[in-house]
């Protein structure tokens, strides 16, 4: 019996220092790349190109420091950040839930899916960013119009993956569950949803980025608070450093969200065999 247990592949045991040393090397090369990149930018902007248009790292750092210490033209930077975050999180939650539920249901209802297919394709082809302007007219300058923009961006990203995930469920697993006594609803919750989870998570990573974009573009189109407003204001005053500073804040938020999602994914998908160490981008 014991012999039947497959043990984790014993990757030709290397001395324990090897992976650690590899990591150090990886990070030092990365740091060198950043230093070279920022350094050459700084140098170029000081001597050759016009920092008015291209800004430079020291100016951007100065602008960020400024925002976080004395605040922005519209009040504390934290307020702007929280406003954008609230819009993005609400839009993400609503869009993801709607996308998952509709995707899974349509994925399991062949006829309904066929009826809906052309409409969904058309809706997906609409340049959804433009809807941000429409939502401003509909919902005004407040939170709702930004959330709505985020929702439409998130919904489609999640919907297609949930749909595909629900379609690709192993026939065998469904048949087995039915034989074991599962009702239609039980097949859905105990087989289809868990099967589609890996697909759904794959889309959620991109979807939070979309939610942020939706919120920022919504603010850009018209708002009285938020990071998008900071960026659009920076554009209005030809403040290139301000645009970069806004971009950096948004990037950091997106990376943090990605990290949280990965934690959640690893928890929910514990049952998966460990993936071979490979670069994930």
């Amino acid at each position: 019996m014991q012999a039947e247990l497959t043990v984790a592949p014993d990757v030709a045991r290397e001395p324990a220092t090897r992976p650690a040393r590899r990591r150090t090397r990886l990070w030092s090369v990365r740091c060198v790349l950043i230093v070279v990149w920022l350094g050459s930018w700084e140098l170029a902007a000081t001597h050759w190109i016009d920092p008015f248009f291209y800004s430079k790292p020291s100016a951007i750092a100065g602008r960020l420091a400024d925002w976080f210490t004395t605040g922005t033209a519209f009040g504390s930077v934290w307020t702007q950040l929280l406003v954008t975050l609230e819009e993005a999180v609400l839009g993400f939650a609503a869009g993801a839930v709607a996308g998952v539920v509709l995707g899974i249901l349509l994925g399991r209802a062949r006829f309904a899916a066929e009826v809906a297919a052309p409409f969904i394709k058309a809706a997906n082809a609409v340049p959804r960013i433009v809807l941000a302007s429409l939502f401003i007219i509909w919902f005004g300058l407040g939170l709702t119009s930004k959330v709505a923009t985020a929702v439409v961006l998130v919904f489609f990203a999640v919907f297609f993956n949930a749909f595909q995930g629900a379609r690709e469920v192993d026939r065998n697993l469904v048949d087995n569950a039915r034989i074991l006594g599962a009702s239609r609803a039980q097949v859905l919750t105990s087989i289809v949803v868990p099967s589609a989870t890996s697909w759904i998570f794959a889309s959620l990573h991109a979807a939070f980025g979309f939610a942020l974009i939706g919120a920022v573009v919504g603010e850009y189109a018209g708002a009285d608070k938020g990071l998008g407003l900071l960026i659009s204001n920076a554009q209005g005053t030809f403040d290139a450093a301000g645009i970069y500073a806004g971009m950096i804040i948004i990037t950091v938020v997106a990376l943090l969200a990605e990290w949280l999602l990965t934690l959640l994914e690893n928890r929910l998908l514990r049952w998966r065999p460990p993936v071979q160490a490979e670069t994930q981008i």
Binding site: D170, N172, L173, S190, T197
Partner: peptide, 8 residues
């Protein structure tokens, strides 16, 4: 073919 649930 195998029909055990991989997530259980």
């Amino acid at each position: 073919t195998d029909a055990v649930l991989p997530w259980r």
